[in-house]
């Protein structure tokens, strides 16, 4: 047997292929293991070798999974984590940071979260918030803020307007848009995006802490929001005038959303907010 393996070059070459590159023998692997190996072979060949080495050294499949997963996590240059090796076939572990107003998250537990949400008439008990109208108001408020102000980052995070996909999307939104399954162009791009998103989120959290601690700033901030809100009402009425008197009665269910004719008018609620901000 040994003479055959070491003396016959062709046999030796075939054996080397089966040993170190078993994907040449597709039928020898079940589909899930093959999928993982194909991904590792294409993208992380060191972990491909490690997977095979641990296997031949007698590790159990669970041990191999754990060891290679740890190696992949150590290699990631940003905050991300493969929880199990199977995830490697889904692409890079992306951390979405979108504001949790759409989710059951810490958003409502933070005092600033409920206060800001109340300014925009978001209801804690109603999870399907529709906030694009508030987005315009946020944009108007941002104009009054210093571009470098952390409050700009806070608003950008709350209303998905930073331009950074990781900041603007929650896990659910990312999944619905197919962004969790390896649709990124490259590691370099996602690394830059992640660094930028981390910075924006850090500044947003600083802003909310500042609002909590500084009543004057909070009042000014709320005042800007209210002014932007009334401005949006005037603009919306102007739009109604343009389209004529036959237009549908003006109602809104969120700030700045004049199209929802069936919704209750929330403006009386805003009076209380405005008084408090003043």
């Amino acid at each position: 047997m040994n003479i055959l393996l070491t003396g016959d070059l062709t046999t030796c070459l075939q054996l080397a292929g089966i040993w170190l590159d078993p994907l040449t023998m597709d039928d020898a692997l079940d589909s899930e293991e093959q999928e993982i190996l194909v991904t590792l072979r294409e993208h992380r060949i060191e972990q491909y070798a490690s997977y095979l080495w641990h296997t031949y050294e007698g590790c159990s499949p669970m041990e191999v999974n754990s060891k290679v997963t740890d190696e992949l996590n150590a290699w990631l240059p940003y905050e991300g984590e493969y929880l199990e090796l199977q995830q490697v076939t889904w692409g890079l572990p992306i951390t979405f940071m979108g504001a949790g107003v759409h989710d059951e998250s810490d958003f409502w537990e933070a005092s600033w979260g409920t206060e800001i949400a109340r300014l925009f008439l978001l209801d804690e008990n109603k999870r399907d918030h529709y906030v694009w109208g508030a987005h315009k108001i946020m944009r108007d408020v941002k104009r009054t803020l210093d571009e470098s102000d952390d409050l700009s980052c806070a608003l950008a995070w709350l209303f998905s307007s930073s331009g950074n996909t990781l900041i603007d999307m929650s896990y659910e939104e990312g999944a619905n848009n197919g962004l969790g399954a390896g649709n990124w162009d490259g590691l370099e791009l996602i690394t830059d995006m992640h660094h930028e998103a981390s910075e924006l989120l850090g500044r947003a959290v600083n802003a909310f802490k500042l609002l909590d601690e500084n009543n004057d700033l909070y009042g000014q901030f709320c005042g800007d929001l209210i002014r932007a809100y009334w401005q949006s009402i005037e603009e919306a009425h102007n739009v109604c005038d343009i389209y004529g008197a036959d237009s549908a009665p003006y109602h809104r269910n969120t700030i700045g959303d004049p199209s929802a004719a069936s919704a209750a008018d929330p403006e009386p609620d805003l009076y209380a907010v405005r008084d408090r901000a003043a």
Partner: peptide
């Protein structure tokens, strides 16, 4: 060389194995 019950070599240093694998691929 292959031994009974062990067709492929074992006990090779991981870095040696990795280099050989990269070359083979």
């Amino acid at each position: 060389p292959a031994q009974p019950g062990n067709l492929f070599p074992t006990g090779i240093a991981p870095e040696v194995y990795t280099n050989a694998t990269i070359e083979m691929v």
